[in-house]
Simulated assay, not measured.
Amino acid sequence: MTEVRIAVPRKGRPLEAVLERLADATGSDGVAAVADQITSTLRYEKAVTKGTKHPDLDAYSRLADYSDLDDPAAPEFTLLRDDREGMPRRIVFDSVTVPTETGDVRLVGREEPFRALRTHEFGLGFDSADLVLEEVVSLAPEGVGDLADVNARIDPRDTDVRVLSGLGDTVYHTLMAKPEILPPGADVDREFVADYEGDLCISPRYERLVEAVLGTRAIEDVSFAYPENGEEEEAAIARTGLGVYLTVTGSTARDHGLVLGDHLFPSETVLMENRAETNGTADHIADLIAGAELDTAISV
């Protein structure tokens, strides 16, 4: 059978979402066991990185323990330099081959899967929808509200990559505000931002994403503000009055006295395709992984 290579993140929630989706799509206990092994290993290594776990073995010895060179189906891990002080090494996902009824799927870890697709290294890949907005979605007076809007905003002269579907591991970029800045009866929504003049607190790397999501017309009279060093985003938004931040339940925002407003855009893992690099087998694999039951499938 033909092997299809798919670029995936090396760690974190997006990789876990891909592994869960692939296990569900194949219905294989063996695939589910491998997915659990990868997830549990990386969660442990994350705890080591954060200093909540203190292993007896060094990173090289742990890497050797995780590896089984005699088993071609076993997942592989690798060491990368971390950006913490001293630049220690961190164990991350490297690759694994998963059998499916359509063909073997080779998941290959990349620091930036989306960019690996843009440079034609892969035909299929998974990454955060946020990166697509940050890098290739064109800015326009009106904002982007959901994944279905994304492909229409990608200039075909800029990239061959398109979003096929979301995996549903959704958290939202959400508007938050102090009640004191709201007129009586006002909602914290896009219309409120369009009429608002003042500071809007966001994470520093999200300027272009927020511009794409809200639209350039809505932020004409807005100035971006940012959390101070070490300050929680919700605390910074409470200090500023209005902001955008990722939220699932919103409990931390409420603890800071904030009112939750519109869910502006879903931050979820998306399946992407570089049409110039795929074939019929890759299309079947994409259909298998995306799943006909998903209601987040996107027309391209």
Rank of each mutant, 00 (worst) to 15 (best):
V18Q: 04
V18P: 11
L19R: 02
L19T: 06
E20A: 12
R21A: 14
R21F: 05
R21W: 03
L22F: 02
L22G: 07
L22H: 02
L22Y: 01
A23T: 06
A23W: 04
A23L: 08
D24Y: 10
D24S: 15
A25I: 09
T26R: 09
T26E: 12
T26C: 13
S28K: 05
S28V: 07
D29G: 10
D29N: 05
D29E: 11
D29P: 03
D29S: 09
G30L: 10
G30W: 01
V31P: 03
V31T: 10
V31H: 00
V31R: 00
A32L: 09
A32Y: 03
A32K: 12
A32I: 07
A33S: 13
A33P: 01
V34H: 06
V34M: 12
V34E: 12
V34N: 09
A35Y: 02
A35T: 04
D36L: 04
D36Q: 10
D36K: 05
D36P: 00
Q37Y: 14
I38H: 03
I38T: 07
T39C: 10
T39V: 14
T39D: 11
T39E: 13
S40D: 14
S40N: 12
S40L: 10
T41H: 05
L42V: 03
L42M: 03
Y44P: 04
Y44E: 11
Y44W: 02
E45S: 09
E45I: 03
E45N: 07
K46H: 11
K46P: 01
K46E: 15
K46V: 04
A47P: 08
V48G: 09
T49Y: 08
K50I: 11
K50C: 12
K50S: 15
G51I: 02
G51D: 05
G51T: 02
G51R: 02
T52N: 03
T52S: 15
T52Y: 02
K53V: 06
K53F: 04
H54N: 13
H54D: 12
H54M: 07
H54T: 12
P55D: 08
P55W: 01
P55M: 04
D56V: 13
D56L: 13
L57Y: 09
L57H: 11
L57A: 15
D58W: 02
D58Q: 07
A59K: 12
A59L: 06
A59R: 11
A59E: 14
S61K: 08
S61W: 00
S61G: 05
S61H: 03
S61R: 08
L63G: 10
A64I: 04
A64G: 08
A64N: 06
A64L: 10
D65K: 13
D65V: 12
D65F: 08
D65C: 13
Y66A: 13
S67G: 11
S67W: 11
S67H: 15
D68N: 15
D68S: 13
L69W: 03
L69V: 11
L69M: 07
D70G: 08
D70P: 01
D70I: 00
D71A: 02
D71S: 06
D71G: 03
P72Y: 00
P72L: 00
A73T: 07
A73Y: 01
A74V: 01
A74G: 07
P75G: 09
P75R: 01
P75N: 04
P75V: 05
P75F: 03
P75D: 07
E76V: 06
F77R: 00
F77L: 01
F77W: 00
F77P: 04
T78S: 06
L79D: 08
L79F: 01
L79S: 09
